[in-house]
């Protein structure tokens, strides 16, 4: 009995590594490691079509730690508002160091694409973003312009003086 319980538990999560495409919730990011639990509700395309309120089912599962290779592509993603179709967005600059992961307050829904036991892509669902990863929807907290990043102040350096 003990054997079969262990086997079932251990089989459940390493199985992720062999799937092509898995929907998960990312609970924690530390360096190049992510703590995830499978997201059964998101796992099937069209599962969201019935509307909100069907999520869940993974809360009780213990997170699994996965290592993400440095060349994995990390992108934003979204569910189309009407059809809930999964759409991959722009690449997130900095990968797992992006502020989406560094400042996460709640688990993030994501799709993990793997090739064999190597993660090739993580598409994380975040609020609507543009290619600069700035929110441009005008619902609630609309942002139509951002303040520029300050460049260095002019110095009387030797740079550029030799013509």
């Amino acid at each position: 009995m003990r054997f079969w319980t262990s086997a079932v538990l251990l089989l459940a999560f390493p199985g992720l590594l062999y799937a092509d495409e898995t929907f998960v919730k990312i609970h924690r990011v530390s360096g190049n490691q992510i703590a995830i639990v499978p997201d059964a509700a998101n796992g099937e395309s069209g599962a969201m079509r019935g509307g909100r309120g069907r999520r869940g089912g993974a809360a009780a599962a213990q997170p699994t730690i996965l290592t993400v290779s440095p060349d994995a592509k990390i992108t934003s993603a979204m569910r189309e508002r009407r059809t809930f179709e999964f759409r991959v967005g722009a690449e997130l600059a900095g990968g797992l160091k992006h502020r989406v992961f560094q400042e996460m307050q709640a688990p993030l829904s994501a799709r993990i694409v793997s090739d064999g036991n190597r993660i090739t892509e993580i598409n994380v669902i975040i609020s609507e973003t543009d290619i600069n990863q700035s929110t441009t929807t005008a619902s609630g907290e609309a942002i139509i312009a951002v303040r520029p990043k300050r460049p260095p102040t002019k110095r009387a350096s030797t740079a550029g003086k030799a013509r």
Partner: peptide, 21 residues
């Protein structure tokens, strides 16, 4: 590695960005 800010709204175009203030 560069952000391009050309404006527009999501209501106007699928690919909209912010401007610089």
């Amino acid at each position: 590695s560069t952000e391009t800010h050309y404006g527009l709204l999501k209501a106007q175009a699928r690919q909209a960005t912010t401007l610089i203030d």
